[in-house]
Design a binder for these strands. Structure first.
Lengths: 181, 181
DNA sequence: TTCAGCATGTAATATGTTACATGATTAG
DNA sequence: CTAATCATGTAACATATTACATGCTGAA
């Protein structure tokens, strides 16, 4: 139910094509909501029907024109309504933890954990760079910036937790030859 | 793709009916993989077709008998195969963060954050109780227990991160009267 | 001219949620 | 007898993934 709302948040920052949105979902917004371009196009069509977004067509001779979407007042009203709903608990689905819990091949888990640890470190470094670049003085933010900064802080915290957990796993996992039953 | 595998892990610990599994997914396994009974029944039927589980019917005069599922050697082979696959990055989908990023009504976000903070604290306390009860001496675990203990440690870490982030939000969120644009 | 990036989508499939439905057993 | 828990499912709908498909533009 929330891809719509993530798109509205993004369009409120700047109008965009479906393609632009897909790129944003690969980068900034993707840090807390993931979506593919196929899903985005489907949802945009639905949102247009609902009147939450307007479309500006750019005809360019060729067959298919570019479509630039922007948020309408009705879209903003919907976003505001939704922000007032208490948020649902996120469903936890971690296949990594299922694998860990299986206790079936600690060498495979170890390798997997090392990959994840490297990922987390890379992501943490990217967030730290973003924070320095966009929020060098967090004591002095506009109302608009605070939400984005706190979202970024959540990402930083999440990666740090992920790193600490991976390190704990690596420190405690015994070595094995395949099955450990 | 992993509900099957979460079920296999659970059945490997002890055979169960769909109903039993649903309860486990509300409790222990649910801490890292959530599923409803409807979804579990659908997937169990598919797993039976695939030969990953066996069914023992308990006829009890009445119309519908109880079905007790247990893992087969083929199911264990599949689980082992899957554990060796590198795990996929979990798709992040946090509607709370989308709301935060929207920057639209900090009082609503504050209330939401307080609810989440209370949830996280409750969950952390539950994990801490579990740890004391089931793993009083973590330096002395069997191979089988280590995976479960590390999964629990991940839960503890996740809740601690959640608490710290909520506290940071509450400390930094300004007060507002509705729209803050 | 070829390849990367821009730009839009359809189709098939998989997965998950919500609402609805049934009936047995057990504890108060 | 009545309510909770045990136990199994169907149906409709919503959401997301994967594979496929098309065509333009600009740089090397």
């Amino acid at each position: 139910m929330a891809l719509e709302h993530a798109i509205l948040v993004s369009l409120r920052e700047r109008s965009a094509t479906g393609y632009d949105l897909a790129r944003r979902f690969d980068a900034s917004i993707g840090h807390f909501w993931s979506a593919t371009h196929q899903q985005i196009y489907k949802v945009l069509a639905r949102m247009e029907q609902a009147g939450w977004v307007d479309v500006a067509h750019t005809e360019n001779g060729g067959r298919r024109g570019k479509k630039t979407y922007s948020i309408t007042s009705s879209g903003l009203a919907e976003l505001t309504r939704w922000v007032h709903e208490p948020s649902t608990r996120e469903a936890v689905r971690s296949d990594f933890t299922v694998k860990l819990r299986a206790g079936l091949d600690f060498d495979a888990i170890r390798a997997d954990t090392e990959t994840r640890l490297a990922d987390h470190r890379e992501q943490l470094a990217a967030y730290e760079t973003s924070e320095k670049k966009f929020y060098p003085d967090p004591t002095n933010l506009t109302a608009n910036e605070i939400g984005s900064w706190l979202a970024l802080r959540g990402g930083l915290s999440r990666e740090k937790h992920g790193i600490a957990w991976c390190e704990e796993i690596l420190a405690n996992l015994p070595h094995s030859n395949g099955e450990t039953q």
